[in-house]
Design a protein around this nucleic acid. Structure first.
Lengths: 248, 248
DNA sequence: TCGCGCGCTTGATCTGTGTCAAAGTTGAAT
DNA sequence: ATTCAACTTTGACACAGATCAAGCGCGCGA
C-alpha cells in the first residue's frame, strides 16, 4: 500500500495524517500499483544538500520523515529559506527539469521519490493526479503568501511566534489531541535556520526566544524542546488572531 | 475566439503575449466553445475592491487590462501585498469557495471571469485545463518565493530595484524589443502600494526612488513614467545578477 | 576525565528604516 | 483661473534589529 506520497489517493482515511493538506479521494488500485513501480527511497543526513538550485532534478517526491528546507542564496551569501518541508510535504516541479532552489536536509531525512519522466506520463494519463497536485500547489502558494506577510510586516517577536505556531500545528505528535492544553514539541531547526526562514539574524532569534521564555509564552527544556502552555497566547503574540477556527 | 484567458489553449501563438507564463498547447475547438459559454467580463475603477478576504468567491478569472493587487491585512492595519496581477494573470482558487486575500484594483481594471461551478466541471472533464492551471500555479509559487527573498533579505534600495525589474519585464509595450536599449514604462502603482508590496513605508519608497534618480539608475518624467537607461545596471542594483538569461 | 568545538546566549554599539511633521506638486472639479 | 484633495517629497529624530565581540554549556571523542 502506498501511503508515503499523499499524492496518491488513499482509500479510507485511517492512514492519512489529519493535515489540512491531506485531502483524500477515492482509491484506485491500478493507480497505486503504477506509482509503486516507479517509487524508491532516498536518505540524507542532517546538513546534506538534496539538490542545488539550477541543477537537473529528475525526480519528484515527498518527505517521509525529517525536515528539509528550500533556500535561495544571493551571491554575497545572504540566504532566505522559502519553504519548509515537513513529513508528507511534496517537493518537485512536474514539467520543469531544473530545481529552482537548494533543497537541504535540516535533520536526518527520508524521502519517497519518483522518477520524473514516468511520473509525468502517469500524470498525463491520470487526471486525478494533476488535480490533486494542483490542490497541493495552491496550498503551498497560500503558505508562501502567508509567509510574505510575516517577512514584510511582522516584528521579530511576532516572527518567532509565527514560526512556533506553524511547527506546533504540524508536529505529528500533536495531531491527535488538537491545539488545546499544554503542547510540547522539538524544534527541528537550528537558530541559524530559523533566522534564515524569518529574515533575521541568529542573534535576534536567540534574544527573542529568550524574551518569550522570560514572558512565560514558551517553556524551554534544553535548547530545542519547547512547551506552549497557552496556544491562544502564542497566537496573539504572532499577531495571528482571527484564526479561521484552526484552534479546535 | 477566446484569448482573454490564457488557460485556454490557443491555436497558433500569434495572439499569445510572449510571456513566460503563456505556454501554448494544441487548440481544442470544443473546449473553447465551452469556455466561451460561461465567460463574462467585469470592470472596476481604480481603488475598488474586487473581493474581500474570507468572502464567498464564486468565480475565477484573469486580468484583461489594468492591475490588481492581492493584499493581506492584520487587525492593526498593517498590510502586505502578496501578489500583483498584471494582464493575463489568473485569479481564483478552483476547489475553494472563499477568497484568501483581498483583491483590489490599483488601476482601472477589466477582468474576464468564469463562474466557478461550471469552470470546475470543465476542469474535471478536460485534463488539459488542470494541467495548464498547475503550471500557472507553479509559476505563481516561484514568483511568491522569489518575493520572499526580496522581503526577507534585501535592502530598501534593492527592493525598489527588484520591483522595477518585475514591472519592466512584464510591461506589454516592452515585450517586442526585449530588454535592451532604453526602456520606458508607466508605474501602475502609487508609492503606498509599492510600500505595501515591498514591506516598507511610503516615505522610504519615496526616498529610495529619489536616490535611484539622483544616481542615474532611473529617469523620471512626472512621478509615474520611468525610463531605465541601462537595464543591466538596474539588475545589479536589485542584487539580481546571475539572471538565467532573461536579458535577451 | 578532560578538552574541544559547535551551537547558543548575552552585551555594547551602530545603522537603516520607521515615525512624525511640514511643505511641495499635480490634476480634477468648481 | 482657483481651490482642493490626493499624492509625493523632504527633514529631523527615534528605535528595532544588525553587527561585532565575548563567553557559556553541552555532547563527543580521546
Amino acid at each position: 500500500m502506498l501511503t508515503d506520497l499523499k499524492i496518491s489517493t488513499n482509500h479510507g482515511c485511517g492512514e492519512c495524517p489529519i493535515r489540512h493538506r491531506a485531502v483524500c479521494a477515492r482509491c484506485d488500485a491500478d493507480e497505486l500499483e503504477q506509482l509503486d513501480e516507479i517509487k524508491y527511497y532516498r536518505s540524507f543526513e542532517a546538513g546534506q544538500t538534496v539538490v542545488w538550485a539550477g541543477d537537473r532534478m529528475d525526480f519528484v517526491g515527498s518527505v517521509v520523515s525529517g525536515v528539509a528546507a528550500l533556500t535561495q542564496t544571493m551571491e554575497d551569501g545572504r540566504t532566505q529559506m522559502v519553504g519548509l518541508l515537513l513529513p508528507s510535504d511534496f517537493a518537485g516541479r512536474p514539467g520543469r527539469d531544473t530545481a529552482a532552489y537548494d533543497v537541504v536536509a535540516t535533520t536526518d531525512l527520508v524521502m519517497c521519490c519518483f522518477r520524473k519522466k514516468p511520473f509525468e506520463k502517469m500524470m498525463a494519463e491520470t487526471p486525478h493526479i494533476a488535480q490533486r497536485l494542483l490542490q497541493m500547489t495552491l496550498d503551498e502558494l497560500d503558505a508562501a503568501r502567508e509567509w510574505m506577510l510575516v517577512l514584510g510586516r511582522k516584528t521579530a517577536r511576532e516572527k518567532i511566534a509565527s514560526l512556533l505556531v506553524i511547527i506546533a500545528r504540524r508536529d505529528a505528535s500533536l495531531q491527535l489531541h488538537g491545539m488545546v492544553g499544554e503542547l510540547k514539541f522539538t524544534l527541528p531547526l537550528t537558530r541559524e535556520a530559523m533566522a534564515d526562514y524569518l529574515g533575521l539574524t541568529l542573534e535576534t532569534v536567540s534574544r527573542q526566544i529568550s524574551a518569550l521564555k522570560r514572558d512565560k509564552v514558551i517553556l524551554l527544556e534544553g535548547k530545542r524542546i519547547i512547551t506552549i502552555p497557552n496556544f491562544t497566547r502564542l497566537l496573539e503574540e504572532a499577531g495571528d488572531d482571527n484564526d479561521g477556527g484552526m484552534l479546535a
